[in-house]
């Protein structure tokens, strides 16, 4: 370990290290951030949900959008896999179906950044009991 030689260096070090704890910091106050749940049941994984999830995490990071990406079980829309549920702070969650990488990119650029809705929304036909 190299020594930290000044307060400025200590601050730089903190900035470098805090990325690694980002996941935990955000989960401490999830309601402040965009929350994305990726349906990762067998049908979801088979249609590429895992690739989509990795893409989302990587791209959100690159594009500087703070979001909590978690995986969830089967959402019941097996016909429209991969599906993701997106919740912007203070808004109701919206479920998108047939999310491939292109669609994921569109969701990030339009919905996450500007709140602009994009094609592929699945009307919510149930209420989640854990809310």
């Amino acid at each position: 370990m190299t020594k930290i030689k000044s307060l400025a260096e200590l601050k730089l070090k903190k900035e470098e290290l805090e990325k690694k704890l980002n996941l935990r910091e955000k989960s401490n106050e999830p309601d402040k951030y965009i929350q994305i749940k990726v349906g990762m049941a067998t049908s979801g994984i088979a249609s590429g949900a895992k690739v989509v999830m990795d893409f989302l995490i990587e791209e959100l990071n690159k594009r500087g959008i703070d979001a909590v990406v978690t995986q969830t079980g089967d959402m019941g829309y097996c016909y429209a896999e991969p599906t993701i549920e997106v919740k912007r702070p203070g808004e109701d969650p919206i479920v998108f179906g047939y999310v491939d990488l292109k669609k994921a990119d569109e969701i990030i650029e339009k919905y996450l950044k500007n709140g602009e809705l994009v094609e592929g929304i699945i009307p919510v036909n149930y209420e989640s009991i854990d809310e």
Partner: peptide, 10 residues
């Protein structure tokens, strides 16, 4: 490092 990431020694 995890302590430093949470404002440790600041």
């Amino acid at each position: 490092d995890e302590y430093l990431a949470r404002d440790g020694y600041q």
